[in-house]
């Protein structure tokens, strides 16, 4: 009996590795090896154009007192702290709204929300630059109607970041809502009927039935959105190039600046190793905090 159990376990483990094999190989070759190489580059002085010079941990020492870098990291955190909860709550909220609509209205709403996701970030960023225009952008025209002065938005050091966050939420809201919605649809109707008998409807039903059953999806959205928020690049590049006065220069933008504008690839690699460690720890904490307490 015990031996058969072992055999079964062995088969299960073998099947598991069989299932994992294509991705293990692919991720190793196309992500992990480049990652290791990037780490190696971080120990070098390399301007891309001439051969690398090994300098040990000098890049890391330089980074430790690079004020611009730590400010950029700070801005990344600011971005994350505003962006992640906003996107999470909004997509959950609209998923719940959609879920309680009739099928036809739901379809229309879902499609409308999803359309921004289809447009290349470069173009959607360009459209928003027009909407945000300080002189005759539609948002300022609307503000004028309700008696508020025209705002600078992307041209202001205090508003640029939040203006960009709005755009990034606008792009991703529909897609994240759809993922929430997909798992909401998996909750059997009987659960709600049972709750109804106990007098739990509306918000209460959402709080006690829907949300707990969305745990796995929520963890996914939370972790992936956080990682994504550390890598937002295109939209910022198009709308502000990190300006005005560096107020939207987040970590990845600074890395790109060092790598390709200053051609400091070794230093840029060291910065990304550190950024990687920051995201890694952050994700680990998120996964721990949200882990099932079995």
């Amino acid at each position: 009996m015990k031996r058969r159990g072992n055999r079964k376990k062995r088969i299960e483990a073998l099947t598991a590795y069989g299932f994992l094999l294509p991705n293990l190989v692919g991720l190793t070759v196309f992500v992990f090896v480049p990652m290791v190489y990037a780490f190696y580059v971080s120990l070098n002085d390399w301007n891309l154009l001439t051969p690398k010079v090994f300098i040990g941990f000098d890049n890391y020492i330089q980074m430790s007192h690079d004020k611009d870098w730590w400010q950029a990291v700070g801005r990344t955190f600011k971005f994350t702290i505003i962006y992640v909860p906003s996107l999470f709550c909004l997509s959950l909220f609209f998923a719940a709204v959609c879920n309680s609509l009739s099928q036809r209205v739901e379809n229309v709403t879902r499609t409308l929300f999803l359309l921004p996701f289809a447009i290349t970030s470069v173009i959607s960023a360009a459209i928003w630059m027009f909407l945000y225009d300080p002189k005759d952008g539609i948002i300022n025209q609307f503000l004028n109607l309700v008696g508020i002065d025209a705002q600078q938005f992307l041209g202001s050091t205090s508003q640029a970041m939040i203006s960009i966050i709005v755009v990034v939420i606008w792009i991703n809201l529909g897609y994240n809502m759809m993922i929430f919605l997909a798992s909401m649809k998996e909750i059997p109707g009987e659960f709600y009927e049972a709750a109804k008998i106990d007098g739990a409807t509306g918000w209460k039903a959402f709080q006690h039935i829907t949300f707990p059953l969305l745990r796995e999806t929520s963890v996914f959205i939370l972790v992936v959105t956080t990682i994504g928020s550390f890598q937002v690049f295109d939209q910022i590049m198009v709308m502000t190039k990190g300006g005005p006065a560096n107020s939207t220069q987040v970590g990845v933008l600074y890395i790109y600046h060092q790598a390709f504008e200053v051609l400091n690839m070794g230093y840029a690699s060291a910065l990304s190793v550190v950024l990687f460690l920051i995201i890694f720890i952050l994700s680990l904490v998120q996964l721990r905090l949200t882990a099932k307490k079995d």
Partner: peptide
């Protein structure tokens, strides 16, 4: 404010 901080 004579020169715009952003132009279309």
């Amino acid at each position: 404010g004579y020169a715009p901080a952003k132009t279309p």
